[in-house]
Amino acid sequence: MSDKAAAMLSRSEASPPARWTARSNVSPARIGLLALTTAVLIFLPFVVTGYVLYIANLLLVFVVLCLGLHLVIGETGQFALAHAAFYGIGIYTSGLAGNAFGWPFPMSMLLAGLIAGAVGVVIGAVALCMRDIYLALATFAFGEALQWVFLNWDKVTGGPNGLRISPARLGTLEILSDKQAYPVVAITTLLMLLLTILISRSRLGRSFRAVRESEVAAMAMGIPVRRAKVTAFGLSAFYAGVAGSMFATFSTYIHPDSLGFQTTILVLTMVVVGGLGSIAGAVGGAVVFGLISEFLRQTPSYQEIIYGLILIVFMMYAPRGLFAFIHDKAGRVFRG
């Protein structure tokens, strides 16, 4: 027996530690994908204008919303359904900071994220005592309650009349068009994307995934499970807050109707159909489904039905998500 053990040991001591492989999941394909995304974002305003840029801005807001939901659902496996509420907090915070105090937009954006994140931590600390369907219902209830607040707190939110958002500003610069807003929105999106990649690859991201895969094993590895869940939930709320603030830079008006469960579900479908658990899936899902729902606006009476049908088709033929589906197909093509 001891010979065998010695053999095992000597083998491990003989071979040098393979350091380079440790970071091997920085694959060229992934870097390429990130570079491509960046390039598209940079060149877009030179080729398109007007309405298309508005759509681009809107899609990027959805990308950030999806990245946030990806952290809590995709990475940590917690089905929290209050995303639109945090998005709303972001929009109102940012709008009010601009309207009332004339704050420069980077500050109001940060404030929007931090307030949404702080509310997220408080709600998360309570809701994340529950799991699965109970967690989903608790966060759903919070989302509904907050929409009710948006609708009825007339003095602050303008209630059912909605709220006019004054143009975002930085010093003497005022953002008055989609074209002017685009660089702000695009850079913020890129920063949030990089932050997501950083989190996902770090010890924090690993602890999130550990919680998703097995709470008992995570605990045995020294991961405080509750705290990891609340952190993920708080971060996702921060993302939603920032997304809200991004929306406020190119919008002049917000109505509480668009801050309900439907928006949460829209973001949820983007993340799930894009590919649960993958950043590329969350981004791809946001872009593809954002575009689809935008195109369907041309046919208002059939919009919901067609959208539903497309979803069903995706669920049937690409159940592991859009990204995995493309990945498999592309792999097959390259292999011949």
Binding site: A22, R203, R206, S207, R209, A210, R212, E213, S214, V216, A217, A218, A220, M221, G222, I223, G277
Partner: peptide
């Protein structure tokens, strides 16, 4: 109680969490 969807490497990395 493995982290089933994660790689072997990542499983052990999570062990090194502390």
């Amino acid at each position: 109680e493995l982290f089933g969807e994660l790689t072997v490497f990542e499983n052990v990395m999570i062990g090194a969490h502390v």
